[in-house]
Design a protein around this nucleic acid. Structure first.
Lengths: 356, 356
DNA sequence: CTCCTCGTGGCAAACGTTTGCCCCGTGCAA
DNA sequence: TTGCACGGGGCAAACGTTTGCCACGAGGAG
């Protein structure tokens, strides 16, 4: 009955570990029986009474299945890698929560790694994750430039789901916000306040969300017969500084001034507000601004910022959902799900000055 | 030479995996030789020429060591669990970065899990991590109430380091900010501006940092012969709402008003500002406020908030450092390192009204 | 009474590494 | 020539599970 060792609970790194064999010896059965008794999907191979007895004993002895050994044997580690660019981004935490909670319900654990938006690090991390034999990956916030990388991961047979950011032209399951709709909502809101000259301060063009926002906004403006003043965009960050820069550029442009502004990021909106005030323009009297993301501080600045809110935790949950589906029934066509954002109206938007 | 299988790179879950054996067959050596050639600490057991040849071949064939198998055999998984209460806390990201970067340099990977400040989840996560045979743990933001839990982890022989929050009376290595000094800095700043009646809006009492801040502040005020108005504290959150509540309580107290306020959290300071304005008190004319944490938005609110800045990434780096020391030379007495914060002066603090 | 089935449970071979041990050949000293 | 050290590399036993297969006994049908 015993295989290799004599005594019970050995020490490892000073930790005592109790194995299947230890439980088996105590229970007077073979360790394979213990293994089966402890695996709900195999428990029917064991008589009810032995099963109960072994389970109780295992619990009493503090047995914990060694997931490393299990992973080696089964070829699955019950681990899903979640790759995120920047953990400091306040939008990402709820997404991670959504993912973790859903995965946990499926018996999977998420292994979070941060690339720090550095492609060399990404490369290192990917290689490490392959070595670690993760079962699948979720990539949040992918950029358009990552397409090749993503295709390579998929080619290696690694199940992959995109979260938050989709990449066009890549056939991968994705759970994202409906950014096109976000752009539409912003435009509709400004138009309904009577603004006829609109502009957007665009986010990075290699982020598909921003492309979508821009498109939704522009189309809606055009359809209403209003004018969109185009602001040439800059380096792909989303900082307040960039907001200020773009705003100044907008105010310097000749012709009638735009009064309705759509910033692709709340931080850019903050910067834009600062720049506008420097020129003596008051918000919302002289111009209205809609931000994006509904950051926690939006209602603490002056004026409180009208913004677009996204269902962040839900996006994470759905991404995990897609992944679980993918793992349980492979070979299905990749599904993309877009979750609708909502408009949160605060004080940074008001009636257009020219109609007052 | 070959052991079990015939062909090369098998498929697993649709992924092709190349093993030591595959490389060995190709190289015409035994797989143990390949293993040694690929392990820098064992490479001396192999002749230089064979070593080079095998390494090149392994690289060309895309061999990646299976860390699961390696972990099983070696009893070490090269994984460190990092437990965090709330990933949404903007202070935590830099700490995680500091930890990850330092651990990576030591060949370790960090496995981040979020307890969502829920002790049931913490329990589940701990059990999962033990199952996963992580080599060590770093606990960030521990609360005083977690002491028993922490002791239990240590009793199981799991190397454990505290980051950000220390717990008194527990003999564990810890990397924290010097919160006592933070309290001292806040008090000194307000005193130097001529304030003689001071007060603090205290954070949660089961967070040791806040206890330390309070102590440093109180002692400094007392030593200067100034008066500290005591505000009875409330539920242990750190929200703006609580800041408002405490501020109102302070303003309602009889006797001469305090003019120098120390809030244990920037968010509380925000709330306090709101409450003060409601009573018609202007900052910094009528009262001065010092916050804590130096949040990214501190300079965007009105007035820009004077705050205490902590070296966050450094705290993470040091925690990882302590852990690595612990793993490489066990049995050393646990070291605690406190990193000094700095005062960032902005516009929310000014000369005391009574001396103007 | 024989044969077959079915319900339990044991046996042992993997999974891919790591590593202590042994073996073989060469070179050098006695 | 013998002896010995040593460099280089093969052998095989683990690490703790999972799982296909076999064995054994009881019970039922013919």
């Amino acid at each position: 009955m015993q295989r290799r060792r004599g005594g019970g609970g050995e020490l490892r790194q000073g930790r005592e570990v109790v194995t299947l064999e230890d439980v088996a010896r105590e229970a007077g059965v073979h360790y394979s029986t213990v293994s089966r008794a402890l695996d709900p999907t195999k428990a029917w191979r064991v008589s009810l009474v032995t099963g109960k007895r072994v389970q109780a004993l295992a619990k009493r002895m503090g047995y914990q299945r060694d997931l490393v050994a299990s992973g080696l044997k089964k070829g699955r580690t019950q681990t899903v890698a979640v790759i995120v660019g920047d953990l400091g981004n306040p939008n990402i935490a709820p997404v991670l929560r959504g993912i973790a909670n859903r995965l946990e319900a499926a018996g999977l654990m998420s292994l979070i790694s941060e690339t720090q938006d550095d492609s060399v690090r990404l490369e290192r991390i990917l290689s490490h994750l392959m070595s670690r034999r993760v079962d699948a990956m979720i990539m949040t916030g992918a950029r358009l430039a990552d397409a090749a990388q993503l295709r390579r991961i998929r080619r290696q047979g690694m199940p992959l789901v995109l979260a938050v950011q989709d990449v066009p032209g890549i056939r991968l399951p994705a759970s994202t916000n409906d950014d096109h709709l976000g752009g539409v909502l912003a435009a509709q809101h400004l138009l309904s306040l009577g603004h006829r000259r609109l502009a957007q301060l665009r986010g990075p063009t290699d982020i598909y969300s921003c492309v979508q926002r821009a498109e939704g906004f522009s189309k809606t403006v055009a359809a209403a017969g209003a004018v969109e003043v185009v602001v040439r965009s800059t380096a792909p960050t989303g900082s307040p500084e960039e907001g200020s820069l773009l705003m100044r550029r907008l105010l310097d442009s000749k012709g009638a001034r735009a009064t309705g502004i759509f910033a692709h990021h709340d931080l850019m909106a903050f910067g834009a507000l600062t720049a506008a005030e420097e020129r003596g323009l008051m918000c919302p009297k002289d111009l209205s601004i809609v931000g994006y993301h509904d950051l926690p501080h939006d209602d603490r600045i002056v004026p409180p910022l009208t913004s677009i809110r996204q269902p962040r935790e839900e996006v994470g949950r759905v991404a995990a959902e897609l992944l679980v589906e993918m793992l349980t029934s492979p070979g299905r066509p990749p599904a993309a799900r877009k979750l609708p954002p909502t408009l949160v109206v605060r004080r940074s938007t008001g009636a257009a000055p020219d109609i007052r």
